[in-house]
Nucleic acid binder design. Sequence first.
DNA 1: TTTATAACTCTGCGTTTCAGAGTGTCAACC
DNA 2: GGTTGACACTCTGAAACGCAGAGTTATAAA
Lengths: 111, 111
Amino acid sequence: MEELDALLHQPLRTQLVAYLAAAGELTFSDLKRQLEVSDGNLDAHLKKLLAADYVAVRKESGKGRPQSFFVLTPTGLAALQTYVQRLQKLLSLEKPADDGVAASLQAGLAH
Amino acid sequence: MEELDALLHQPLRTQLVAYLAAAGELTFSDLKRQLEVSDGNLDAHLKKLLAADYVAVRKESGKGRPQSFFVLTPTGLAALQTYVQRLQKLLSLEKPADDGVAASLQAGLAH
DNA sequence: TTTATAACTCTGCGTTTCAGAGTGTCAACC
DNA sequence: GGTTGACACTCTGAAACGCAGAGTTATAAA
C-alpha cells in the first residue's frame, strides 16, 4: 500500500505547504492570516515541518520588527510532489475513466 | 478559507473512502487487507465514518461467518466530491498554469 | 514613558490514533 | 460431539497530536 505522507496529509499543513509552494516565501503573519489559525497552532505545525526539513526559516531582525520568512526546502518540494502524485492516483484525478473513483463520483452526481 | 473535511483528510480514511467509492461495497476484512491496518484501528475509523453517516453497514449472519459490508452513503459521496474539488482547487490539479502550485511543482522538477 | 501592537513561543488539556488483548461465531478434525 | 483453529469483529488503555490562550520580547505610537 502506498501511504500518504502523514506530515502533509493534515488539513492545516496541506494548505500551508500549498501556499508556500505557490508564493515562494511567506512570513509567520502571512500564514496566520491566510490559514486563520491561532499563533500556537501555527507555531506547532511549522515546528513539525522544520523538524522534517520540509520548510526552512530565514529570520530578520534589527530593522523593523523581527520577522521570520518561511520557504519550502527541496526536500519539502519533493515530498509534496510525491504526495500529490499519490493523491491523484488514489482518487483517479488524472483520468475519469470507467474504473476509477472519479467515475463513481460522476455516477453519484447523476442521481 | 475553504477548509478540508477533517474526517476525510486523514491518511487512512482518505484511502478507505476512496476504495469504497471505487469498489461499491467491501467487508471489514477486505478493507483490513487493502489498508494493512490493525483490527482496532480499522474499527475506530469505521466508527467515525458511521457516526458521520458517511458510510453504512449491512450485517449478514446465520449462513457462514458473520460479515459486515460497508458502503458509502449519499452523504459520504457528497462529502467526498466536495473534498476532492477543494483539493483540486488548492493544489491546482486541474490546470497546471503559471499561477498555481502545479506550476511551482514543475519548476521544482526542472532543477 | 506609558500604551499598544505585532511577532512569535511555551504550556497544558482534550481529542485522535493506534496496537494488542478480548469476545463470539463458525468450520474442521479427531 | 468436543476440541482446535481461524476468522470477524470489539474494547481498552497508552502514546501522539492538535489546539487555544497565556506568556515573552521587540518595536512603534501617543
